[in-house]
Design a protein around this nucleic acid. Structure first.
Lengths: 343, 343
DNA sequence: TTGAAAGCGTTACCAC
DNA sequence: GTGGTAACGCTTTCAA
């Protein structure tokens, strides 16, 4: 495998100077048409591509490049976070280089390395679920690269972040169901114990405990919700398990709107009336949650604002040493029909 | 405003060599703890940040950068196109630098210029609705920058593209409604005459004509569907207009699933039965289309495949001069409940 | 019309 | 332990 063609290669092969080659390739004046043609031809043949690194370095004009890594790029929440980041990046004349980890820490690490090689001035990322924090993120801090973490937290991380209060959201959702008279509240969550779902589950458990209820183990279904294209089905399957119990639940707090929608699907097909027989609360305020029937009560997550703030924090962190920026957004419950209470 | 601190600045101020400063800042061995501390202190004070451009240049790591511009980044279709592009970019060891034009040609042009400054090796873009083709895109072709256009076409463009057959999709959708016995078929489209919606509308008109039906003007409602957050409402409003006609339609072909969902909303609230009294077909096969009740018949648009192919074309175009790659995807009708025919 | 050489900021090698 | 210097690929200035 041969190396990338550079100006010198062309110059050497043609027995002319680098400068001349440069002029030909950049449409400068003062160049013989004949030699110019020869140069262009050879450049094409050798597939010459300018090295943007060298150009930027030399011109000393670097538009700040910010690396953004998200687990799933076409997930509405993450896509909206990206939109928020971009909207502020645009105002600050920064460019966004984006990568999708697909929840794979190895892929995440690779993207991170590529970003650094590409010369990003910092990173904004929502870590993959099992992201190896020590291996993927700590090294960046050592390199003094500004980094802002979104959405998912790690115990010993002391840097910049923009989070949502998932614990509080889970708590609110569960308490809302309790307030509306539901007693046997089940939870469908994620198998992955490192997901943000864990915090939502903890909130659920805490709300039950605070109400003097000890959550039954059989009421907690953990499901593999890796693939966004199948989560609705996973919700459906989980509901099927719950309703085959001797004493099925009268409410479900689902870790995700899609899961909740799967539960609604199941309920409809099995003539279980919502909200009279079954209360449901989801999580995310996805577009669909407001158009499924019955409309789904859910917990709002404002991705756009989070993205904007993440960029602001990145920007501040870039120009101030040592200072740390952290924010946890409160999550609001959006009450709709699916949880209005038992008859 | 003072310039960015570099290694030499620190070395000069301390009267030591660049090499030593380098060692201190990169945790190399063979360095006196005392001097190391002094260097680190001064580095902090002067807010030293390594120039990643220089680092990458020196280390000779260069990853091809591909610029991607989309009108709306958190729109499911575009987000999925982006995902498709990224999936292939990842395989080819390329990085994606992304921008959102928000349908603004000026913004689009600015992003394009920034991308070029950043040294992208090419562009994949879904142009903004009113994009000034001559001004925004033609100049790139002159610079020999490989470019692939997605989703929206221009009359005199002869370069690489990946499109969908929107005309055919509109035709199929309308014919399907005719086949199922609907006679008075309305259409809700986009006000913007440069949108892809125009092709869908043409398909609709052609299908009616081929069936010997002359489309009534009052059955064609054009709506401003710029803002993805409000399209469902727009569909609702359009339906309200249609159903206040003396002779309301018995079917609607909507330019978008969201519009169709708005129509379903209206029908439900006004006790118009679907599909018995009103047949509906949407466009895009959005996630929601399969979970709204009744499930929405729609035209499939495979963003992921389009994105993948767009990257492939980009890749081929990069390594072959002059050759042009073009593809128009056929669109399949996904038949669900909302169009099953009149009773 | 062409070419030589300095320099962008960092790293790596070799010499002291 | 420390320092000098070449090199990464390109642009720019000055000289021929």
């Amino acid at each position: 495998m041969n190396k990338r063609t550079k100006l010198k290669d062309i110059a050497d092969q043609l027995g002319i100077s680098i400068t001349t080659v440069y002029r030909a390739l950049n449409n400068k004046s003062d160049i013989n048409e004949e030699t110019k043609r020869k140069i262009l031809d050879l450049a094409n043949e050798l597939e010459y591509r300018p090295n943007s690194l060298a150009i930027s370095l030399r011109k000393n004009k670097m538009i700040p490049l910010v690396g953004v890594i998200l687990p799933i790029i076409n997930h509405y929440f993450f896509a909206t976070v990206l939109k928020g980041i971009m909207s502020n990046a645009h105002l600050h004349n920064s460019l966004i280089i984006a990568g999708e980890s697909l929840q794979d820490p190895t892929k995440e690490k690779r993207i991170l390395d590529q970003f650094m090689d590409q010369g990003v001035s910092g990173i904004i990322m929502a870590p993959a679920r099992n992201s190896n924090f020590e291996k993927n993120i700590i090294p960046l801090l050592h390199k003094r690269t500004p980094i802002v973490i979104i959405d998912r937290m790690y115990d010993h991380y002391k840097g910049n972040y923009v989070l949502t209060d998932d614990y509080g959201g889970g708590y609110k959702a569960t308490q809302h169901l309790l307030d509306n008279g539901y007693k046997r509240i089940a939870h469908i969550g994620s198998t992955d114990d490192k997901s943000i779902g864990t915090e939502r589950r903890k909130g659920y458990v805490a709300a039950l405990n605070d109400a003097g209820i000890f959550p039954k183990e059989e009421y907690i279904i953990l499901s593999d919700i890796d693939n966004p294209d199948t989560t609705i089905e996973k919700g459906y399957e989980a509901a099927a398990i719950l309703f085959k119990l001797k004493n099925p639940p009268d409410a479900v707090f689902a870790v995700t709107d899609d899961i909740a929608i799967g539960v609604i699907e199941y309920a409809k097909e099995n003539n279980i009336f919502i909200p009279e027989e079954l209360g449901i609360v989801g999580f995310s305020n996805s577009k669909m949650s407001n158009y499924i029937r019955p409309r789904l009560t859910t917990v709002e997550q404002n991705g756009f604002k989070m993205g904007q703030l993440a960029f602001d924090y990145f920007s501040k962190a870039s120009s101030s040493y040592g200072e740390v920026f952290q924010k946890t957004f409160d999550l609001d419950l959006i009450i709709r029909e699916s949880s209005l209470g038992k008859k």
